[in-house]
Amino acid sequence: MIDLRNIETFFWAAALGSLRAASEKLGTTQPAVSQRIASLEAALGVRLFERDARGVTLTAKGHELLTHAERMMQVRRDMMQAARDQTTMSGMLRIGVAETIVQTWLPKLIEEVHVAYPAIVLEIEVDSSHILQSHLMARQIDLAFLLGPVLEARVENLPLCTYPLAWVVKSSVDLGPGPVPLAEVATLPIITYASNSAPYRQVRDMLMRVGISTPRMYGSASLSMVVRMVLDGIGSAVITPVFLGKELESGELRLLDVEADPLPDLIFMASWIDGPDSYPARIIARMAQQVAARDRIARSQV
């Protein structure tokens, strides 16, 4: 008879690539993990892993059986969730968040999660989408709100919100009457998202297409830093103005009409790795989608 605990151990050893990591995930010892996998291999009559000094790798048959193991674990998870009220969800959920979301509707989501699932503890990491994707794939976080989608195996993506990009400058900076040629804007540094982000690359390419071979660009994962630099008159910025209501209304900052290619929208997704322990991430992602939709409606009515 096949022990479901051994199947779970097989799954995590395959997903994490080592018996040590699987033992830490399951809260047991490495010898216990080895014994469970050996028992499963004996029950199935196949070899699931090749073992060497670097860790474990799946055999061809192991790859084939991994999908069945994942499906069995998901069925067990679904059965357990169906047997109890969803409000009993508990434990820690690690969420990685792009700062644009932090500056808009994340606090409302945290409030709603606390009310609906008081036994869930949220651990929040704020970073660039590039870093968040790498942390998600390394299973260092359970759920990511980032520029997406994440096109990797077993990753689920749920649309959250879309925000326009715009050129923003300190109101006292004189660039002449608009629309302003891009070459004129580039006489000052251009400040935008981190250098490994899609907006940074798109703005850089835009500048190079008009003959600016070495554009002066400052990239930062901190939007508060970007806004501070613009307020200090260091240069213009390419960011979403969705969280700049106060600065734009007070006249400290203004939107700049630039003669250039249209700026693309920022498309944010909730992304998580589908698997037997992904139920909380899926539920919170759906809550985030609803919170983002209400935030969009509220902003459109202002």
Rank of each mutant, 00 (worst) to 15 (best):
S18K: 05
L106G: 05
A260H: 00
V56M: 05
S300R: 09
H68C: 09
T9S: 01
V126H: 05
G245N: 15
L44A: 12
S128M: 15
S18Y: 08
V230A: 11
L182A: 13
P118T: 03
N196K: 12
V169S: 07
L165Q: 02
V180R: 07
A298Y: 05
I267P: 00
G96R: 12
S271Y: 05
T67Q: 04
R228W: 12
A13Y: 01
F10E: 00
Q289A: 06
S18I: 03
V203M: 04
L48M: 05
M73C: 10
G233S: 07
L266F: 07
W12P: 00
T28M: 11
D174A: 09
I95S: 06
M229T: 10
R228L: 10
T28G: 05
I283A: 05
V302C: 11
L255C: 08
M73V: 06
M89F: 14
E8R: 02
F10Y: 02
G245Q: 14
V291T: 07
S195P: 03
A13Q: 00
I297V: 12
T162E: 02
M269W: 09
Q35T: 03
A198I: 05
A53T: 14
E24Q: 14
A83N: 12
S300I: 00
M72A: 03
R286I: 05
T59V: 08
I95E: 03
I283Q: 14
A83M: 13
T9G: 02
L244V: 07
Y117C: 09
G27V: 10
F11N: 00
A281W: 15
H135R: 11
T29W: 11
Q74S: 13
L65S: 04
L151V: 13
E24H: 08
S171P: 12
T104R: 03
I141C: 01
C161H: 07
L231A: 04
K61M: 04
D78Q: 13
Y117L: 09
R294E: 08
I110H: 07
G219I: 06
L16R: 07
S171Y: 15
S23L: 06
M80T: 13
A15F: 11
A43L: 03
P177A: 14
T29N: 10
S39I: 06
I101R: 01
R54M: 07
L19W: 06
N196Y: 10
P262Y: 14
A53P: 09
E156P: 00
Y117M: 14
T162A: 03
H68G: 06
A237V: 09
P241L: 00
G275D: 10
D52N: 14
K25F: 15
G275S: 08
